[in-house]
């Protein structure tokens, strides 16, 4: 079954017809040419396809495009305005990558995660569920655990996220 949908992609409205089986990831990459959103495992296990949907980090591979009609998508490319986003710059400053394939997902995940911290969301490693969140190394590791880096650039990623958080 085909459906007409409209997505806002990095601020630009894009209309297209999708089969119900099309994931948001495939709609972005294969239909709209938004190739900075990466397909890693395609099963919600690696985090490469992380994008911001209506401001929150989600996995595009587990979302059906038809079900997300009308959503605002922000990808790693869409984060830069008048120069790099602070998270992007921090990944450069700290070599938060090697091959770079997971990087767009890492960057979007970090941006979404820092918003969650600002909103006071606790994590699995938060000792006191009712206290303000203190973004320690363990907190960053836990909150970024949905993004795998096959090159193992985790030390740089941790440093980059700490810098971007202003820690």
């Amino acid at each position: 079954m085909d459906s007409q949908i409209t997505l806002s992609v990095n601020g630009t409205s894009r209309s297209l017809t999708v089969d119900s089986r099309t994931t948001l990831l495939d709609a972005l990459r294969e239909r709209l040419g938004v190739t900075e959103v990466k397909k890693g495992c395609d099963h919600g296990q690696c985090g490469s396809c992380t994008v911001l949907l209506d401001g929150r980090r989600e996995l595009a591979c587990l979302a059906l495009a038809v079900a997300r009609d009308g959503v605002e998508v922000v990808t790693a490319d869409g984060l830069a305005h008048d120069g790099l986003h602070a998270v992007q710059q921090a990944f450069l400053d700290h070599d938060g990558y090697q091959c770079g394939y997971c990087t767009p997902g890492q960057v979007c995940s970090a941006v979404g995660m820092l918003e969650e911290v600002k909103d006071g969301h606790p994590s699995h490693v938060t000792t006191d569920l009712e206290a303000d969140v203190e973004l320690t190394d363990d907190e960053v590791r836990e909150r970024m655990s949905g993004n795998l880096c096959r090159c193992g650039a985790y030390a740089g990623i941790l440093a980059a996220v700490r810098q971007a958080a202003g820690a």
């Binding site: 919600g44 985090g47 992380t50 929150r56 980090r57 989600e58 996995l59 587990l62 979302a63 995940s109 979404g112 995660m113 969650e116 909103d119 006071g120 969301h121 606790p122 994590s123 699995h124 938060t126 569920l129 009712e130 909150r143 970024m144 655990s145 949905g146 993004n147």
Partner: peptide
């Protein structure tokens, strides 16, 4: 998991949710 009443009155619910999946998947 982030709801104030859940965190104060049902900490095991918050902890169970936070121990599952990843930040992205918990948002979905």
């Amino acid at each position: 998991a982030a709801h104030p009443v859940v965190r104060s009155s049902f900490p095991l619910v918050a902890r169970a949710l936070l121990s599952g999946a990843s930040g992205q998947i918990r948002n979905q």
